[in-house]
């Protein structure tokens, strides 16, 4: 019976080890993809903002209240027309996904840590 128990436990560890490795690889690939996508879209957005000098819009806030009241909506409208909406949308989407995924991995990190500790304990026993 002890041999059978050892066989069962060994198989369980084999299955869990394969599953964990696969999980780590997949999560790693997703993380790299999201980080890379975020980097690309943020670079594109900042490049466009720099070229179009869109940051000039924010200077209106340093003007007098009268100037601000008179020209704010016009400036805002021009600013809205010029911003790269698609790229900005994708940037925020990937930003949201990246942090969401990061929090998910962080939340489940203790489980992965416990599994790795269990594997090490099992390897030591062998």
């Amino acid at each position: 019976m002890k041999n059978l128990e050892k066989k069962i436990i060994k198989n369980i560890y084999k299955i869990e080890f394969k599953k964990t490795i696969f999980e780590i690889i997949i999560k790693g690939l997703i993380f790299i993809f999201l980080f890379f996508s975020l980097f690309i879209f943020s670079s594109i957005v900042f490049e466009i903002i720099k070229e179009e000098r869109l940051t000039d819009f924010f200077q209106i806030f340093f003007e007098d209240k009268e100037v601000w009241k008179k020209y704010f909506f016009d400036s805002f409208y021009i600013f809205y027309l010029q911003i790269p909406k698609v790229y900005l949308g994708l940037f925020f989407l990937f930003l949201f996904l990246f942090f969401g995924f990061f929090l998910y991995v962080l939340k489940n990190f203790y489980r992965l840590k416990n599994k790795i500790i269990s594997f090490l304990k099992f390897i030591k026993k062998i």
Binding site: M1, L4, E5, I8, I9, I12, Y13, E16, Y110, R111, L112, K113, N114, K115, I117, S118, K121, F122
Partner: peptide, 19 residues
Amino acid sequence: NGQIDYFEIIVKKYTSKIY
């Protein structure tokens, strides 16, 4: 919670009955 070494306790407890 990931502490899979505790599964050994279940295996040792029920293997003989299932067998």
